[in-house]
Amino acid sequence: MLSSIFGSLFTTRFLATVIRLSTPILFAAVASFIAASTGMVNIAIESIMTFGALAGILGSYLTGNAWAGLLIGLVVGILTALLIALFSMRLGASPILIGIALNTFADSLAIFFLYQIAGEKGTSASLPTKTLPVVNIPGIQNIPVLGQLLSGQYVLTYICWIVLILLFIMIYKTPLGMRMRACGLNANAARTAGINVEKLQIFSLVLSGMFAALGGMYLSLNYLRIFSKGMVAGQGWMGIAANGIANGNYGVLLLSALIFSAFRAVSIVFSSSTIFPVDLVAAIPYFAVFCFVTIASIIRYYRVKAGKVEEQ
């Protein structure tokens, strides 16, 4: 039994599961990354994912169209980001405190709105909602192995991949990206070069909100097809952790997000058997993130001590 479980980790099906699970974490990771690129801190990603997820599904219910729901979710993500921008940049509140506050009552707020519209406090299951489709790519789907991975994914997964590529190009190849990075590395230098630092910072927060909302909507509109309390389950934080480990390196960012997704997949595979205690198995991904973050920081600590890197 044990060997068959471990065996199943090396199948294409497992990889396909990892890909399916990676989308929200990748969205969260780039949400954290893009905000950090201009020097902003967005701790509220988990809450924006929740809000986006709820807004998406409720929007779909109210308009009868899943794509309209997607749009509404994006708007909610943008508005939340603007709220953070307003309070942290104009009104001088600490963005970390705002983030913690938002995360902490995200669930309450979501339940409040859910209750108003669906009369329920737990899930949106009672609402008939249109959801987003799975996409099968005709040519690719027949390729062995790769076909299973590249075709037949949820549409938001493909959107995620497109976002990852476009974001890379924007940040490293366009003037806008260079200016944003300048804001994050030395805001004063950017300012004297004539760049409107504040505007770019708000822009990066808006993008961050959009990506986070997309991550949430993947869960509610595509993957699970409902909204339920606590559905984000720490994936926003995993994205933030990935950005912390990456420290500006785009490749490491994506890799970390994928590794965390892999652990979630492992957790799911293990929980299907009775050998491992179900509660501990559920804790695997969190334990994995904990280990990776801790080890990464210990490595950084010793490298600074040896004089290999500049202290941040």
Binding site: I43, W237, A241, G244, T294, S297, I298, R300, Y301
Partner: peptide, 8 residues
């Protein structure tokens, strides 16, 4: 070690 205590 300077680890991110929020995430941890």
């Amino acid at each position: 070690f300077g680890t991110n205590e929020m995430v941890v």
